[in-house]
Amino acid sequence: MTNRYSRQELFLGSKAQAKIKEASVIIIGAGALGSASAEMLARAGIGRLTIVDRDYVDLSNLQRQQLYTEEDVRNQLPKAIAAKTRLEQINSEIIINSFIQDVNGLNIEELIEDHSVIVDATDNFETSLIVNDAALKHRIPFLFGACVGSYGLTYPIIPGETPCLHCLLNHLPMDGMTCDTVGVISPIVQITAALQVTQVLQILSGETLFPMLQSMDIWKNEKAEINVTQLKNKLCPTCGEHPSYPFLLFENQMKTDVLCGRDAVQLRPGLKPKTYSLPYLLERLKNHVTNPVLNRYLLSCKFEDYRIVFFEDGRSIIHGTNEAKKARAVYKRFIQFY
């Protein structure tokens, strides 16, 4: 039988292929970019692949999130679970770990431990900055990527060499930078992920990556490239001489996020979330909800005018609003039944 990696090995060499087999890559987010990167990396034979995602598969994901199927939508499977299942069908020779978690300043360090490369596939810039802090602290290369509309950008962060993501900020991030308003087409996802995966293969092959910030607009056929070496900031709170890793600082509060293009809000409880019994919760709620779907990972049901997806760690996604305040009130009314 021919080696499944023979074509790749012809290009990269057997030494690089051995490195790929020994490597462990963590992908933060399993949406569009995460699906695309994960499939390429699994096919490439990365020895250990870790997927982290907070969401479940929705019909509106199928247009661009290549790992998922209509059946996953019907079963309302968490993306982390559906992704692992699909990736194991693609390559059974590698180890795939997946976590249904919302990445935050408290859990990120444990998640990335023992990985050789981190791939950014989050759907918001704030989480990228949390990952950037952890990557610098643990000295793991971090490949930033993001896309919206027909526009995408990438930037490789190599601790000790390139400026970090934080160095590049000319001011602090603000709301309104996600795909809520403009949508996204799948070709830009593929291009952005392809650039990130190329960088993974280059790192594992021992190539030097330069601090090139790259962007492209596939609709306008426009590209830009800037070498950002001069933005390296000696006083950077993340990669400077006295780092404080500000984005890892923990918030002991219920956190709310408006989700990308979903008319939904995610709520995450503060410190030490407890584990809820979902069958028990459904039993208590049965006269107050309709259309319940219960699986091992989540309970989804209609409550008042909202569809609520409740995970066993108390995290919840509330559909039918994009107002954090309203979502908090609904969550409170919902959880009082437990």
Binding site: A32, T122, F125, A146, V148, T178, C179, T192, S215, A224
Partner: peptide, 10 residues
């Protein structure tokens, strides 16, 4: 001139 702006989304 090159301008690259950051977005969230992915």
């Amino acid at each position: 001139v090159e301008i690259i702006h950051f977005v969230g989304g992915g």
